[in-house]
Design a protein around this nucleic acid. Structure first.
Length: 275
DNA sequence: AGAGGTTCTCGGGCGC
DNA sequence: TGCGCCCGAGAACCTC
């Protein structure tokens, strides 16, 4: 589910819901979600009495800031946040509950239990995993054609797995990497170092354009994604490649195909994206 | 029944 | 042979 556009949408909606709320208690039903500190009791004790002052994002990670701490949260496949009245029942997939002093609760629900939370002192979060080695943000000045060229030039991986590597560039996941490659007319199995200068220029442009258009549409809802207010995204209507195998290519009219690349389902047009 | 939007870890293979 | 790097496979979990 959540790639950069979805996480950015969650960030905005979550911020509206929880800003200025004070944590009274934390309940944890599946301790493995908490990766740092190792002792879950320390995680709980640290957050008691803390007030939420901001909600940020780095790549696909949400960062919930309190006065003293940074809670780094990854939704992985199906993690979701929602604000609920304290007396509303919760189901077996609700693993972490932040009880606020006003009687409401921020609940983290994750059917597959893949999500993670790391708590650090504010300011330390970028010096430790999982944020420490991340590549540039696609909308930052650091992400230039020159940067992308340099990175792709020195790897023998296929271009799709290379672009999914969050240490090269943050934000792309399986949906948007297929979209950016389609829009740039590049076959996902091309060896990264074989891309030409014009191809990389086009790829850079389409990565930024695809992600920014998707942010404007509130992300893509394929199976389960909703933002923190329970609303679906609308970018799934604009997709050229993802999930469209067997359907007509919006550019040339021939049927799209689905193959496996680096173990991931990969959608592309064999006519518009030549090997 | 196997695939699914993610990412970390591990081990094989290769080159020096 | 040994070490380091790069890359791909597998694992973490549940639902349809």
């Amino acid at each position: 589910m959540p790639e950069l556009p979805e996480v950015e949408t969650v960030r905005k909606t979550l911020k509206k819901l929880v800003l200025h709320k004070t944590i009274d208690q934390v309940t944890i039903h599946w301790p493995k979600i908490i990766k740092n500190p190792v002792e879950v009791e320390q995680f709980i004790d640290a957050l008691k009495g803390e007030t939420i002052v901001d909600v940020g994002r780095r790549g696909k990670f949400l960062i919930i800031y309190t006065e003293t701490f940074a809670l780094v949260s990854h939704l992985r496949m199906e993690g979701r946040y929602g604000l609920h009245p304290g007396d509303e029942p919760y189901d077996k997939h609700t693993h972490v509950i932040f009880h606020f002093t006003d009687g409401t609760e921020l609940r983290y629900r994750d059917v597959r239990k893949f999500g993670t939370m790391h708590l650090y002192k504010k300011g330390d979060e970028f010096n430790y995993p999982p944020l420490i080695a991340l590549g540039p943000e696609p909308f930052s000045e650091e992400f230039t054609v020159e940067y992308l060229t340099e990175k792709l030039r020195k790897t023998n991986r296929k271009v799709k797995p290379a672009l999914l590597d969050q240490n090269l560039l943050v934000g792309l996941g399986n949906i948007y990497v297929d979209e950016a490659l389609f829009r740039a007319g590049i076959h996902p199995e091309r060896i990264a170092s074989s891309l030409t200068e014009p191809e990389i220029t086009g790829l850079h442009r389409e990565i930024v354009a695809t992600l920014s258009e998707a942010v404007k549409k509130g992300g893509s809802t394929i199976r389960s994604y909703v933002n923190s207010q329970g609303e679906i995204g609308m970018f799934q209507l604009e997709l050229y490649a993802y999930g469209r195998q067997g359907e007509e290519c919006k550019r040339c009219g021939r049927p799209l195909e689905k193959i496996k690349v680096g173990g991931r389902g990969t959608h592309f047009c064999p006519n518009c994206q030549k090997v």
